[in-house]
Design a protein around this nucleic acid. Structure first.
Length: 208
DNA sequence: ATCCCGAGGG
DNA sequence: CCCTCTGGAT
């Protein structure tokens, strides 16, 4: 039997309730430099941003710009990021991406998604975070939290793919609310309705 | 569908 | 011990 999904109005109500729980929600990856932000987001896959923030200061000090990172050895980069998960592939992707930024984009970070996702290690989610947090372009990055929340509240089907979730959320909310709702969902998922904790989703909303 | 992959929390 | 973390490439 088909799964019952929330109507657009119902879904909007849930999302706005989450929004109101975190009026000041913003990314915890607070790197204002776009290159640094791109590196941090690329590193953050399957890793807590707390860990990323812990290793970033030394990383930035040694690799302040794309050319310095492009020239670094994989081994050196791995030593910088060895405390986060998936460090082998991340080091490779960081170096390759830095080299492409130097060769093709004059060391600048591209501002459109189609170009961003061509960079090694940059997928849909990472590109959206860079666009939203780096350039202020409205976008909803679908990560583990956004995906889990959307499914537990039945805003999307349980088997929905990330791109389908993104489209549905963007359809429910006005563009002006995309970035903030994304950040609010992250905090809601991280600190309130966690992956392990599986009570009735609506009970988390009532805890103010 | 599978692999990568260390740190931290429960 | 087991699960999870703002995924992406193959």
């Amino acid at each position: 039997m088909p799964e019952k999904l929330l109507s657009t109005a119902e879904a909007r109500k849930v999302l706005r309730a989450i929004n109101e729980m975190y009026p000041d929600a913003k990314s915890e990856l607070i790197w204002d430099n776009k290159f640094h932000l791109l590196c941090a987001v690329l590193m953050s896959a399957q890793t807590t941003d707390k860990m990323v923030n812990r290793i970033m200061p030394k990383f930035i000090a040694d690799y302040p710009d794309p050319s310095s990172l492009a020239q670094a050895s994989i081994t050196d980069i791995e030593h910088h990021i060895s405390k986060i998960g998936l460090y082998h592939s991340k080091a490779k992707h960081l170096k390759e991406t830095a080299q492409i930024l130097v060769d093709k984009f004059a060391g600048q970070i591209p501002e459109d998604k189609k170009t961003l996702v061509t960079l090694p290690g940059v997928g849909e989610k990472t590109a959206n975070v860079v666009l939203a947090d780096g350039f202020g372009v409205p976008a909803i990055a679908v990560d583990t939290h956004v995906s889990r929340i959307s499914k537990r509240f039945h805003i999307v089907p349980q088997n929905a793919k990330p791109l389908e979730i993104e489209k549905r959320l963007e359809e429910i909310l006005p563009k002006s609310e995309w970035i903030h709702t994304h950040h609010a969902m992250i905090l809601f998922g991280r600190y309130s309705m966690t992956a392990r904790d599986k009570e009735d989703p609506y009970s988390y909303l009532k805890k103010q």
